[in-house]
Design a protein around this nucleic acid. Structure first.
Lengths: 283, 283
DNA sequence: CGTTGCATGTCGAGT
DNA sequence: ACTCGACGTGCAACG
């Protein structure tokens, strides 16, 4: 099993080899001068130029120029590749449905075509993800604070699963939201969602929401939410300040290596806390 | 100007060709059996297997397997590529700083190495982006609603620039947030941010709904007279008690082809509206 | 350089 | 099939 490679093949030769390579399930690369057009979720056109077209046996297609990490055009896995020769020129199309999308590469010249059988390890082990951060915390809860006790991960709530749920030294419930990198206000919104959900749940007080209607005139300036959801009517800020009433106290802790100023503001508005912690390495 | 290609080169041959290709500024592809390790924002290790390594003259590096649209490992543009032979084996490293990141590809076998000079069009014309959606609306404001008048795009606010700012038939300010595809609750949060900022700027009560301190209903008008037929949630939804507040009324309109249920809820809570509109094509 | 927001984001998990 | 949230997101514009 070896690489087959054609230099400056005729379009018809290229077609034959392409189809054979499709059948073999090879990874295919075609380098040549071409135009590219795409239509689907958006639409695009790319004038003539030298590009590298990658066709994968799983249906992925990538058109790469000499710049950029992201392909200039592409088709996701699951697409279907077809090749034809029309008007003496090689055309490669890749289509998929749901959504309907088509990628068309028209070659005026094929400089090189290679077909490569791929074998072997596809198993990537990645470290430093959010999950690693969680693991770190579970192994050493004091990283959050002394006396913190994790109770559950991915704890379900009406607002979705919270990363880590636990209690502090006083037994007060703590919702922890983990981010592996510097975060903006969106993360605060996310945390707020969970905290609110938990307060409602623990409060078991149908009117709890209304009580919050007394809500916060507190945000003087743009307490806003960022690209994330955050919701607005929660108002019931962190410390159930004024009323120690029905709403049970629930702390919100955002764990991230660092946060933006805007996020810090919003965190303060909500009465939440930030714990600086990296997914990997030292505190 | 032609493609240079080596089949099953020795590691040393591969090294020479690689360095020559670096000098020429070629687009390089190396197919062979290799292990890959990465360290930087995260860290990863990939066992032996056949992969395609793409090295771009702008510093981008991509490691592709036979599956997936995204490379299994990569390095962004601006990185620096280096190749060496150590213990008789070809090693390619790509490094960058800020953040410090390193990609190391160690080949046990090089099946093929190609170096390709790339010329020509890099100019992609893309349609259907959010900008197109904006253009569409500016050309035909009635797509939002009859009587809508755009006044400004990218209008600055303390919460950032709003996509479109205008007034409706009554002269009421309207903040329009554009999304080119189906949106979740996050978009509502973003819209809320802008609306709140504008309410503050125009002089009052950022919450717009609310509140205890009754203030003189200076304006007689209130939304009850539904000029806008369609969606039922005019004003008085959720906690928004249709108080005829003195706060200048500011409407929030989310333009997107469709929205999730959760987003719809939030939209209703806030008293905002959704206008179904595609970036491209028909209403 | 950091922050912000779009993207044909992609990808995977849960429902 | 759809929603949700993470991602080494990438990327450009802007301050």
């Amino acid at each position: 099993m070896t690489v087959t490679s054609l230099h400056d093949p005729s379009h018809r030769e290229a077609l034959w080899e392409l189809e054979a390579a499709f059948d073999r399930g090879d990874l295919i690369s075609v380098f040549g001068r071409c135009t590219v057009s795409y239509e689907g979720r958006a639409a695009s056109d790319l004038g003539a130029g030298d590009r590298l077209l990658l066709l994968k046996p799983d249906g992925a297609a990538l058109v790469h120029t000499d710049e950029g990490r992201t392909p200039v055009n592409w088709q996701p896995p699951g697409s279907e590749h077809r090749a034809t020769v029309r008007e003496g020129r090689l055309r490669v199309t890749s289509t998929r449905e749901n959504p309907d999308e088509t990628l068309l590469v028209r070659f005026s010249d094929v400089h090189q075509l290679s077909a490569m059988p791929v074998t072997g390890g596809r198993d990537l082990t990645l470290h430093g993800s959010e999950e690693d951060l969680r693991t770190r915390i579970l192994e050493r809860p004091s990283l959050i604070e002394d006396g913190f006790e994790p109770r559950e991960t991915e704890r379900p709530s009406s607002a979705g699963p919270m990363d880590v749920f636990g209690v502090d030294a006083d037994g007060t419930p703590v919702v922890v939201e983990l981010k592996r990198r510097r975060v903006g206000p969106d993360a605060v919104g996310q945390l707020a969602r969970y905290v609110r959900a938990l307060r409602e749940e623990l409060g078991a007080d149908p009117d709890g929401r209304d009580s919050s209607d007394v809500r916060d005139s507190s945000d003087g300036r743009d307490s806003s939410d960022g690209r994330d959801s955050s919701d607005g009517l929660d108002g019931s800020t962190g410390s159930d300040v004024a009323d120690g009433s029905d709403a049970p106290r629930v702390r919100g802790v955002l764990v991230a290596p660092s946060i933006t100023d805007r996020a810090a503001e919003r965190l303060a508005d909500r009465g939440f806390e930030h714990v600086a912690l990296e997914a990997t390495g030292g505190k």
